[in-house]
Write a protein that binds this DNA or RNA. Structure first.
Lengths: 196, 196
DNA sequence: TTTTTTATTGAACGTTCAATTAACAAAAAT
DNA sequence: ATTTTTGTTAATTGAACGTTCAATAAAAAA
């Protein structure tokens, strides 16, 4: 100490600890003491690195969003067909459930809070629109523009609905797999219904 | 004072004030001071009538649930067909958006908190299962049992997904009507797909 | 008329919380 | 060798929170 270059390390530790705390206690009961304990650090360090609790919360949401985006990007290649891309979108959305079960539980907390927090709401809109436009972009290669928009809206709603119900019922991994299967099925039925 | 029989009056006032406060500030920032101010009463009265803040929160959720149930019951007659019943279920779910816009904003807060609160979670499960079984019961009169369960799950997810996306995007009433229309359309397509 | 009941308030209280900061230590820079 | 920088902690602070409760008032009951 000082071991120069600790900032990104500590920031990530705190973000990870935040995710863990929100998953376990909920956003409301997540205090900086709980976060710092999980990170094995002192509470003062949150103010130091993130200017306070709110900064840490926002950074955590941004981290989760960039993770979701990364999962999707990793599966895409130049030869990916529209159908495959749609399936990848679904996998990306449900894979976060399977691979990061703690992350799952935190989304609901953040979105609920986003209704009353300007910055979080802005991030949520980005997220929601990204899902919609990813879906619409792929559907557009399979059907007319208007139909693609409708299909994207319905598909996004189905994804979110299946996700919400699975999360709220505290389902296990089998249920999430089933939801992924159902969502993929629904994509196929949309393609059949509206496809050229 | 004492004007005998004030308990139910005051309880309802506090419940209404809670809904208003949660809609405006979110559950996390809803304090008993905020609630009592909106109700025009003192904060001590919350402890008196509900044994504390937690009791008031739970009573509020129960009130919202019973409201939802009532809206549905009001539309049913002995001659209601299964199709009509399905449409009524959808209207009941989306009508709470149109008629009680403050109520809408509070659901997300409550369900998010339900992940970390035993009693709220129990109530949420009741709510979720009620929607599913209402849908399944009607679908069963139109198709095989297995197909009815699947249709009910998909339909419930679509309803919840459309609702979630509309709420999170802070949509206006036109969007909610559109969601109701889309959900009804989806019910029809499910009947066509799986119906006998 | 007196006592009890109902209803309500607002202050006091202990606890919790996020933010601040003095202090310290060690590595890096001068 | 000295100074600066980086990193971190523990202690402190003041505000906010929910709960408790003594006190009060008026209606109802005896």
């Amino acid at each position: 100490m000082p071991k120069v270059g600790m900032q990104p390390v500590r920031r990530q530790q705190l973000i990870d600890a935040t995710i863990e705390s929100v998953a376990e206690f909920g956003l409301q009961a997540t205090t900086i003491n709980r976060i710092s304990e999980k990170a094995g650090l002192s509470s003062g360090i949150i103010s130091h690195y993130f200017a306070g609790k709110q900064g840490l919360i926002e950074a955590t949401v941004r981290y989760l969003l960039s993770n979701l985006k990364k999962v999707l990007m990793e599966g895409l290649t130049p030869t990916t067909t529209p159908e495959q891309r749609l399936m990848l979108i679904i996998e990306a959305n449900f894979s976060r459930l399977q691979q990061q079960s703690e992350t799952t539980k935190t989304w609901l907390s953040f979105w609920s809070q986003s209704m009353h927090d300007y910055e979080l709401h802005r991030l949520q809109i980005v997220n929601s629109r990204r899902l919609f436009s990813n879906l619409a972009c792929s559907f557009k290669q399979l059907m007319s523009d208007d139909d693609a928009k409708l299909a994207a809206q319905l598909c996004a709603a189905m994804i979110d609905g299946l996700w919400l119900r699975a999360v709220l019922s505290k389902s296990d991994e089998n249920e999430f797999e089933r939801c992924e299967y159902l969502a993929k099925n629904y994509v196929n039925s949309l393609i059949k219904q509206y496809g050229a």
